[in-house]
C-alpha cells in the first residue's frame, strides 16, 4: 500500500442537492460499478414479513433487514467528479446521494444483532466515549 500526499476533497455544498436513495448492502462482491435495474429486479421481488426481508440474487437466497444510521449521522454516496491523472493529484468527490437507513443482506442466515454491520454502528458511541471531551 503506497502512502501518497494527495488530498481528497468532499464538495460539501453538494449535500443539499443530493437525493435520498434506498441503499442495499450485499453479501457478495459484484464486479460492477454503475447503474443497475434495482427496482425492476430486486425491490420488485423482495418480500417483507415480520421485520425480515427475503429476496434472491443470482439464484441465492438472501435474508435482510433495515438498519438506521447512528443518530446524528447521515450516509453519503460519493462520486468522483473527474478521475485524476496520477495518484499525486488531489481528488474531488461530490455527494451524489444521501441515506439515513440501509438494508443489509445475509446469505441465507437470518439477520441478527451479531451481524458485522449492526455491530459497526457501535463505533460512533464508542468514539464519543473515547475521544469526546471529559466532563468533571
Amino acid at each position: 500500500m503506497s502512502c501518497n500526499t494527495s488530498v481528497t476533497h468532499v464538495r460539501v455544498s453538494s449535500v443539499s442537492q443530493a437525493q435520498g436513495v434506498p441503499v442495499h448492502l450485499m453479501p457478495c462482491e459484484i464486479e460492477h460499478n454503475g447503474p443497475a435495474e434495482v427496482s425492476q429486479y430486486f425491490t420488485a421481488t423482495t418480500k417483507d414479513h415480520k421485520h425480515e426481508k427475503t429476496v434472491s440474487f443470482r439464484g441465492r437466497g438472501l435474508k435482510g433487514q433495515e438498519i438506521r444510521c447512528p443518530e446524528g449521522y447521515t450516509g453519503l454516496v460519493l462520486k468522483e467528479i473527474s478521475k485524476p491523472g496520477s495518484d499525486q493529484e488531489d481528488r474531488t468527490v461530490k455527494v451524489s446521494s444521501v441515506f439515513d437507513k440501509l438494508t443489509y443482506w445475509n446469505l441465507e442466515t437470518p439477520p441478527n444483532s451479531d451481524d458485522t454491520v449492526v455491530l459497526a454502528m457501535d463505533w460512533p458511541k464508542m468514539a464519543e466515549a473515547i475521544h469526546g471531551p471529559v466532563e468533571d
Binding site: P27, E29, I30, G59, R60, L107
Partner: peptide, 23 residues
C-alpha cells in the same frame, strides 16, 4: 429461470458481470 442450470450459468458467465460469494 433456474439459476442452478448450467445453461443459465454459462450464459451469465459470458454475458453478465462476475459475482463472488464468500463460499
Amino acid at each position: 429461470v433456474r439459476f442452478s442450470w448450467s445453461t443459465a450459468q454459462t450464459l451469465m458467465d459470458s454475458k453478465a458481470v462476475a459475482v463472488h460469494w464468500d463460499d
